[in-house]
Amino acid sequence: MQSADSSGQSTHDTAENAPIPASPISDFWRALALLSRVPVRGIDDFRAELIARSVWSWPLVGLLLAGFAMLPAMLVYYLTASTLIFAIVALAGMVLLTGSMHEDGMADCADGFGGGFECARKLEIMRDSHIGTYGVVALILCFGLRFILLSAAGDAGQAAILFLVMAIVSRAAVPVVMHILPPARADGLGKGAGTPSLMMVGLGVGLAVILALVLSGVLVTLAILLGGILAVTLVAGVAKWQIGGQTGDVLGATQIMTELFVGIAFIAIL
């Protein structure tokens, strides 16, 4: 009996310590399941190592989600020729696909950073499911600015391009913050998502640059990259100052802020 138990334990340990099989396809589906509400069958393993390895594909997830969100938006634009309606429907589609996870992070960061005086209190507020005044104001300003940016791009016939580029580049920015900042908590998404390697982060950024070049050209890509760098620097700097690292909420705020900075850079260079 002892021998059988030892053998079973040994087999179990070997299985636990087995290397994680590399699969770019599973990376993408895992990223899609993590970053959206899209049902993905067969993906139920979200160990930190697997999430960290999948970050190279996050720009592709952004491209896919933005593409789906634009389908009804393009339909209503065809029927109404209104860039304002296009912007509203496209943003609503993205919110439905993502479950507002990034907006939730933005609101929680605004409440925590604005409402707490000590790090522990800030983190406590950020974990509270209720939304406060700072969070409401942050969401209004962020949605309003995204709406205005898409409308302005629409006047130049570039709303669809901007919508795609914002989704792509912003999701390449999130792993950068995951890499440069330590988790601020011992639990939560910021810790559970792991620390992606520089290679995986670089692959994601490189992929985002290639997609941006194809969609918008060299000059615009340079401008939006500058906007992305400024957004990451700002969010990472404020998060380090406020709570000493990153959390899932900080990562969500990174995505939203990068969209805004990319959008501003895009409009400025048109």
Rank of each mutant, 00 (worst) to 15 (best):
D45W: 04
N17S: 14
G112S: 11
G204M: 13
G244H: 01
G8D: 14
L139C: 13
G144N: 06
D104Y: 00
A138S: 15
Q9N: 14
Q242G: 05
D128Y: 00
E103T: 09
L225E: 01
Q255F: 05
A69W: 04
M126Q: 10
G194N: 11
A66V: 01
M166L: 13
G144Q: 07
F28P: 03
D13A: 14
L60E: 00
S54N: 07
S100N: 08
A87N: 04
S10M: 14
I267H: 00
F117H: 14
A138E: 11
G248A: 01
G202M: 10
M106P: 07
L96M: 15
M166W: 05
D111T: 01
A160Q: 09
G188P: 11
I269N: 01
L75D: 02
F113C: 04
D5S: 08
I229W: 05
A73I: 00
P39M: 02
S197D: 08
L213V: 03
S151G: 15
I85R: 05
L96R: 13
M166C: 15
R47G: 15
I269Q: 06
T258L: 02
G263D: 04
G204Q: 12
V136Q: 09
I229Q: 04
L150S: 11
V177W: 08
L203Q: 11
A120H: 12
G115T: 05
M1H: 12
I43T: 12
P24V: 06
M166G: 09
R185T: 12
D108Y: 00
K122F: 05
L222V: 11
G194D: 05
K122I: 14
W29D: 07
D45L: 04
A81F: 08
I161R: 09
W241E: 12
V55H: 00
K240S: 13
R185Y: 14
D111L: 02
V137L: 15
Y134N: 12
S10Q: 13
L234I: 09
A110P: 03
T247M: 03
D111I: 00
A186S: 15
C142H: 10
P72A: 02
A156C: 09
G248M: 01
L75Y: 11
S23K: 09
A92K: 03
A22L: 13
T247N: 04
T98M: 01
S3I: 08
A66C: 02
D27G: 09
L225I: 07
G227P: 12
R121F: 03
S3V: 11
L149D: 06
F143H: 10
A212Y: 10
D111V: 01
T98L: 02
A212C: 15
V61F: 04
Q246L: 07
V137W: 12
A120W: 02
K122Q: 11
L50A: 15
Y78K: 07
L123M: 10
A156L: 13
T83F: 09
D44V: 11
G192S: 15
S170E: 04
L97Y: 06
A236E: 03
L203P: 11
P59N: 03
V250H: 00
I229V: 15
L162V: 04
A160P: 00
T11P: 06
Q246S: 08
L215S: 06
K122V: 15
A138P: 10
A253L: 01
A52N: 03
P182K: 12
L230M: 13
G42T: 03
L270K: 02
L123P: 11
R146A: 05
V176K: 03
A184T: 13
P182E: 08
I131E: 07
